[in-house]
Computed example of a mutant assay.
Amino acid sequence: MEKFNVQNVIKTLEELVNIPSPSGNTQKVITAVENWLRPLGVEMKKNRKGGLIVTLPGVDETMHRMLTAHVDTLGAMVKEIKNDGRLSLTMIGGFRWNAVEGEYCKIETSDGKEYTGTILVHQSSVHVYKNSGEVKRDEKNIEVRIDAPVKNVEGVRKLGIEVGDFVSFEPRFQVTDQGFVKSRHLDDKASVAILMNIIKDVIEEKRPLPYTTHFLISNNEEIGYGGNSNIPLETVEYIAVDMGAIGDGQATTEYCVSICAKDSSGPYHTGLRKKLVQIAKDQKLNYAVDIYPFYGSDASAAIRSGHDIIHGLVGPGIDASHAHERTHTDSLENTSKLIYHYLFSTMNENN
């Protein structure tokens, strides 16, 4: 970790966000992660839900750790083909329609064809619709304008587009000269990129982990159940690496690693949270302890499913979550260093 280079995380992140992966359609991005990790010679397997589990052996094989980050994103599906050749949508994940209005998108057909389009409110033209600004942004009024010469249902179906086809949002990834990383889907591909590079660092350093550790790249978190299974019985500590929410009343910033004390599911394990805070202090990291009022994670999903684990949640601070997201290289670095040093910390099952 002395040789940590945040640019490696950013490079991996850019590759990930440019692979469309709304929940339910994550095969391509999971394969990309698998191919990225394969040269490292790590043990990998896929679960039946399509997630990827990477295991690094540790000195102690009786107590395990598990860390998870999710590669699935927000998105949509075609709900209806309209008479004028436009598409109505149904949401995948929890966002607001105004957050994607005006966004470029891709429609993927069941046979793998892709078409581009734009997400618009039906009454977009102010020269035609006097109340354009007041129209409610909802499932009734938001639609996709396909970049193809279609004027009716039949024309759309000739393209191969049908109800149930996935629609993904263009990420528009950008890194500024001030170190800001702007993109859709930083939730949670920023954390996936961090875990991938930490795995690489641990392998290349040939430094044995104190405990056997599993890394789950989950693929259904945005719809609530990505990390609630395939948790080995030996697992004691389970940490979700996911974005830290920023806004009024929040302590988290775009520059720190966020350590969650409580979200909508209730408090996270107090002892594990205190340990993470102590590691952050010892390593002189920029961190914040925070509460996310409208939030759930793979760790809370695991607890709800009945697993007897100590659960925690950390991640980079992400501004404008589920909209036009932004973080900073400092946040990626602080999060990476906290997780790395946590992996080599001593575990106390009774903390």
Rank of each mutant, 00 (worst) to 15 (best):
M1Q: 10
M1H: 10
N5V: 07
I10Q: 07
K11A: 15
I30Q: 04
T31I: 05
E34F: 10
P39L: 08
L40T: 01
G41T: 08
E43H: 11
M44W: 04
M44D: 09
M44R: 04
K46H: 13
N47V: 15
R48F: 15
K49F: 07
G50K: 06
D60I: 07
E61P: 00
H64K: 01
M66K: 02
V78R: 01
E80S: 09
T90R: 14
G93V: 02
A99R: 06
V100E: 11
V100F: 14
G102P: 10
C105S: 14
T109I: 01
T109C: 03
E114S: 13
S125W: 04
Y129L: 01
Y129G: 03
N131C: 00
S132C: 07
E134G: 08
V135M: 06
V135N: 07
V135W: 02
R137V: 10
D138Q: 12
E143S: 00
A148W: 02
V150M: 03
K158E: 15
L159G: 03
I161N: 00
V163W: 01
G164D: 03
F166Q: 09
S168C: 09
E170K: 12
Q174F: 13
Q178I: 05
G179Q: 09
F180G: 11
V181C: 11
R184W: 08
L186K: 11
V192D: 08
L195K: 01
N197R: 08
N197F: 06
I198P: 04
I199Q: 12
I203Y: 03
K206S: 13
L209A: 04
F215H: 09
I217R: 03
S218A: 13
N220I: 01
Y225C: 12
G227L: 08
N230T: 06
I231C: 06
I231F: 06
E234L: 00
E234I: 02
E237M: 07
A245C: 02
I246P: 08
G247I: 11
G249H: 10
Q250F: 13
Y255K: 13
I259M: 07
C260H: 00
K262N: 10
L272N: 06
K275W: 05
A280H: 05
N286Q: 12
D290K: 02
I303V: 15
D308L: 14
H311W: 10
V314D: 09
H322E: 05
H324M: 13
K337N: 01
K337G: 00
Y340I: 11
L343W: 07
T346N: 12
